[in-house]
């Protein structure tokens, strides 16, 4: 099974080609912001270098969230359209689960987290591929509390620059053996998404949306002001 995987969830743009769970080829552009410009050309050159065309791909895999809202939509829109037009499979993989795979083989709890401003993080904790703290939107103190309650001795924080919170993390998890990932250890690899995609459930392209983990501020404000519940997203859009 040939898998083309895409990550536009963070500032790294990555695409990869996997044959089942074996990585064939991967591209990563670090710290670039205009994923919409580079994604398709990167996919085109990845395929060309491997003598393939889009039609040869069996499964399109994408980092489905959390991450940059716009970035997630760039990747998922592309993958959805490929799958829908070519009648191939679409799968979504957790951005955080994929990040945690940078430490596959380490006997440690991996706390994968993306900075969501004001000491908030989109975060999850993984032992290998298994989620032990579900992906969610956490304040740093809340995250440290949940990690502290787990029995794991060795803990690695990955995905963001945690150096500015180093003291707070060390104080909150005083009895753990801590490490903060640095530099390339924080890169999001599409190849990891491809490996996880082998066992990920297949999605209906018409139904697939990013896993933002947060509604917009406008929606929270509206709910607070009116006391109304959110309807299903589909209730707000109608064909005319």
């Amino acid at each position: 099974m040939k898998i083309l995987s895409i990550s536009t969830a963070t500032s790294d743009l990555s695409v990869a080609l996997n044959e089942a769970d074996h990585l064939v080829s991967e591209k990563i552009e670090e710290n670039q912001r205009n994923h919409s410009v580079d994604l398709d050309p990167d996919i085109a050159s990845l395929l060309a270098e491997n003598g393939l065309s889009l039609k040869d791909i069996d499964r399109f895999a994408v980092a489905i969230g959390p991450g940059s809202y716009t970035g997630l939509r760039v990747g998922l829109t592309t993958a959805k359209m490929f799958a829908s037009i070519l009648n191939k499979e679409l799968v979504g993989v957790s951005t955080l689960q994929a990040l945690a795979q940078n430490f596959a083989g380490e006997d440690a709890l991996i706390v994968a987290a993306l900075d969501a401003r004001n000491k908030n993080f989109f975060a999850g904790a993984y032992r290998g591929k298994e989620a032990v703290i579900a992906d969610g939107h956490y304040h740093l103190s809340e995250l440290l509390e949940q990690v502290g309650a787990l029995p794991d001795q060795k803990v690695i924080f990955a995905g963001s620059d945690f150096s500015k919170y180093q003291e707070e993390i060390a104080a909150g998890l005083a009895d753990k053996d801590l490490r903060l990932a640095e530099g390339e250890e924080n890169l999001l690899h599409a190849g990891a998404i491809g490996r996880l995609a082998v066992s990920a459930p297949v999605l209906d392209p018409d139904q697939a949306v990013p896993n933002y983990l947060r509604r917009t501020q406008a929606e929270y404000d509206w709910a607070k002001k009116t006391g109304q519940e959110f309807a299903a997203d589909s209730a707000y859009v109608e064909e005319v």
Binding site: R73, L76, M81, I85, V209, T216
Partner: peptide
Amino acid sequence: VPEVASRHHIEVITQITRE
């Protein structure tokens, strides 16, 4: 609200292409 608009666009894009 721009972010809400973007979220709705991606919900329907493949379906309305086929339609």
